[in-house]
Design a protein around this nucleic acid. Sequence first.
DNA 1: AATTCGGGGGC
DNA 2: GCCCCAGAATT
Length: 281
Amino acid sequence: MIDWFSVQGRDLPWRRPGTSPWAILVSEVMLQQTPVVRVLPRWVDWMEQWPTPADLADAPTAEVLRRWDRLGYPRRALRLQECARAIVREHGGAVPRGLESLHSLPGIGEYTAAAVTAFAHHGRAVVADTNIRRVLARSVRGRALPDPSYSAAERALATRSLPAEPKRSVAWNQAVMELGALVCTARSPQCERCPLAEAGCAWYAAGMPPSVQDGRRPQRFEGTDRQMRGKIMAVLRRDGEAASADLLALDPSDPARVERCTASLVQDGLAARIGEQLRLP
DNA sequence: AATTCGGGGGC
DNA sequence: GCCCCAGAATT
């Protein structure tokens, strides 16, 4: 897989030599539940505007939310600024080392702490993103998909799969993640391109059996509070502010929903009420 | 362990 | 239309 990566791996800007640990951390936060192709232009713009934690720490929050644009989950943008401020305040402006220190930062969970350790500090860490989890589930466990939540079995598997030597572990994490993103994809995997197919994949050897679905269906997006919150944030990004009447027009049939979503955005620090106006914070 | 939290592109 | 995307925080 490491050899495969050296040939087939993408030349993503945050992988280039000389990219700062902070820039890599920013890319990881943007990539949380957001595809690479959509992150690319936002990351380039963001790092040009705010190259260091100190730059982001001092930025107006309204501008931070504007430049986050439509990456989704805008609370990530708030937490990223809080993260920058914590790094300035508690770590002298440098991204800290160590899973515990990283995990304690706002917006940095188990995955991102491991990813920053591996890709920014070149340390050995168990990086279990959706791609690595899927590659291991297929190649070792012989299943179509990983468990619904990151299980103890998966954690143990990922831990024993990671090479012991630090430098090699970094290359392994990068390679397996990329294999999952480009070849061992969730739908219609390209096994004919996979270096594991012939001798290294239990799922392929078993004839690629489908997963057993669990009947429960996730909530539809259309008509949810989540969608309404997104619509309100889109107006605020565009105009900076909005009158109550204009917001109610977003769903004339359900003014209570608009009010409920507005209140939750204010509660989350994504918007502020100034009289009858709603504004970016 | 289950929910909530955006948005868009591929199929 | 449905599904997935380098998850985190909260309950």
